[in-house]
């Protein structure tokens, strides 16, 4: 099946958008018009490819844009000056988690909280959404796929948020709040 002309236009716009961003970001100061042009072209390109060939169109078009961006890195490699000086021994800005040596127990607790416990929290939240969608008249297939898609997304976000919290109590309160919200929703809507 032949590709529609608007798809090729979308591909061209995507590449042009990446070019516009390249030009904009190479300037010493920000250029709002160029940034808008760049991001706008990429957005229009995605919409156009979706219109032409649906999700397939967006997937293929995005490969072109990503490839173009990576190719634009090549001149950057070639033009980068060779580092002749001795490597600078930069100081390390110790982050909260890397300061000192964290006790093994503390590390294990972080692992358990951001791993299995957070996964369970993400699952509860996804199941609550499923129950609400099903109760609202959504199809069974949609509800089930919602859980399949939401569990990794919720877990990825939750794990990141929990790891960015310094205090154990804050982590546990987030998880507790999540459970308090998710469990009744699952039970009520289910």
């Amino acid at each position: 099946m032949a590709l529609l002309p608007q798809f090729w236009l979308a591909v061209a716009l995507g590449i042009a958008g990446v070019f516009a961003l390249r030009i904009s970001w190479a300037r010493p100061s920000r250029s709002v018009p160029l940034n808008v042009l760049g991001w706008g072209s990429i957005l229009v390109s995605s919409a156009l490819s979706a219109w032409a060939h649906g999700a397939w169109g967006v997937a293929v078009q995005s490969l072109f844009a990503m490839a173009a961006a990576l190719l634009l890195l090549v001149p950057s490699i070639a033009s980068a000056p060779t580092w002749k000086r001795k490597p600078v021994d930069r100081g390390v800005h110790a982050s909260p988690d890397t300061k000192g040596s964290m006790a093994l127990g503390r590390r294990a607790a972080t692992f358990v909280i951001t791993g299995p416990v957070a996964l369970f929290g993400a699952l509860l939240l996804a199941l609550a959404l499923r129950a609400m969608l099903a109760a609202g008249g959504g199809s069974e297939a949609d509800a089930n796929v919602l859980v399949l898609a939401c569990v990794p997304i919720f877990w990825g976000i939750l794990a990141t948020i929990l790891l960015m919290m310094e205090r154990r109590r804050t982590q546990l309160s987030v998880l507790a709040t999540l459970t308090i919200i998710a469990v009744p929703l699952t039970l009520l809507a289910g």
């Binding site: 190479a26 634009l72 890195l73 950057s76 001795k86 490597p87």
Partner: peptide
């Protein structure tokens, strides 16, 4: 996003 100091000898 387009800056790549590929030929530096440090981190």
């Amino acid at each position: 996003a387009f800056t790549l100091r590929a030929r530096r000898r440090d981190q």
